[in-house]
Design a protein around this nucleic acid. Structure first.
Lengths: 227, 227
DNA sequence: AATCTAGAGATTGTTGACAATCAGCAAAAA
DNA sequence: TTTTTGCTGATTGTCAACAATCTCTAGATT
């Protein structure tokens, strides 16, 4: 009789109601159901979710810490709106984190990790060949996740995730499109090769130059603000 | 009759009780009053502060997000304890953030900002000449704060502050000493000069090499764990 | 007409009580 | 003896009610 333990896929992991509420709200925000600027009122969400206001409050505090919501004391909470300055911050910060991740992943590269990088790169190439920019975006995120995980750095992972979420929010709010899918694949090919090569300085340099989608996003927001 | 407004030093800024409680707890932790591993129980703190448990709970959630506390569902909260792995993470992450800050500060350098950098550097040199390592540590932090502020990047500032706080916690828990104060001053001199020079690539390279205290900290923790 | 004041509505902030979970331990069962 | 079960104490998680703050508007004052 096999014991059910914490590593089993049969485990039910308890998750407090406030965290579940935060998860659901995050999903709504990142799927575009709650546009930037949407007010997130404790009273409304409490009624909608069938939970107490305190529980919702705790969930909103969590989202505020993740940068997805902004709190206005006594006046409500809202989904975060983004300026060009915000986009610039995210793009520069993401790049710094990805550069660190590339170097550390490279320092600790293993055959198994190489395979996972290659697999993620293949997914990206497949999505690009189908001209499906949404899947390209997802494959792009997934590839970077693999790199960041390969860095073996919990804080880096946590911080990268927060940045990624905010970037997702901005992509949705801009209806950002990827204009040159082949270039994106080529850039990522170059990055993965550099990491797998074991040359940390090269990996770092390539990651530093890896900015096509970030620059595009900042530019789009800048133009939107000028109009 | 002068109007009192939000920019006046006479303004009282409302700060919710939960944030005030978080401030006070943060201070206790960073001053060493609450050692790493100390249990932070809602019931005890509630009685001690004369606030409700919910308010304390919210304060602890804030500290958990800052990495100063760890939550154990249904079993209490504790001041974060640090391993060598944690120290490594902080040191590498800090370096990446400082490198970004140096580059951005350099890109946006102004005469006024140069002066502030020089002033902060002087404070560091003074502290070192008095062989007062606590003041050296504070001057070191202050100088980096000036650099990070000069980067004009709100998220970078926020993230840097979280990392800095955690580093402070670790320094206290290790009784870390600075062994070569002159070298520290020289390194910072080099960094400030690079930023002020306006050469962003140089600023970045110097910031990347700027790691004396971080490496020392990691090494001390590694030896403490071996014993 | 311009400015100030008070009140109402909307919303959050805080509280104390009840509900839920966890770990440890003693007793019962195998 | 080992394993299982049930209970208890300690602590958090959640709830509904009360307290506090903010913005806006109408009325009063200058």
């Amino acid at each position: 009789m096999k014991k059910v333990n914490q590593q089993s896929t049969l485990t039910i992991t308890p998750r407090s109601l406030d965290m579940q509420a935060a998860d659901l709200l995050r999903e709504q925000i990142l799927s575009g159901s709650f546009a930037p600027g949407t007010r997130l009122l404790e009273v409304d969400l409490s009624a909608q979710f069938g939970l107490s206001r305190g529980t919702i409050r705790s969930a909103l505090q969590q989202l505020t810490h993740e940068g997805l919501a902004v709190q206005y004391p006594y006046r409500g909470c809202a989904v975060c709106s983004l300026s060009a300055q915000d986009a610039w911050e995210l793009y520069t910060l993401r790049q710094a984190l990805e550069t660190l991740a590339a170097r550390l992943a490279c320092d600790q590269i293993t055959p198994e990790r190489s395979q996972r990088l290659q697999a993620a790169l293949s997914q990206l190439a497949n999505a690009a060949s189908q001209q499906n920019w949404r899947e390209v975006a997802e494959a792009d995120f997934a590839l970077h996740q693999v790199i960041v995980q390969a860095a073996g750095h919990r804080r880096l992972q946590a911080q990268y995730k927060v940045v990624e979420q905010q970037i997702r929010l901005y992509i949705i709010s801009c209806n950002a499109l990827y204009s040159d899918l082949d270039q994106i694949v080529a850039e990522h090919q170059h990055l993965v090769n550099a990491i797998i090569s074991g040359d940390a300085t090269l990996a770092e340099q390539v990651a530093k130059s890896h900015n096509t989608d970030g620059e595009m996003l900042v530019e789009q927001l800048r133009q939107a603000e000028v109009v």
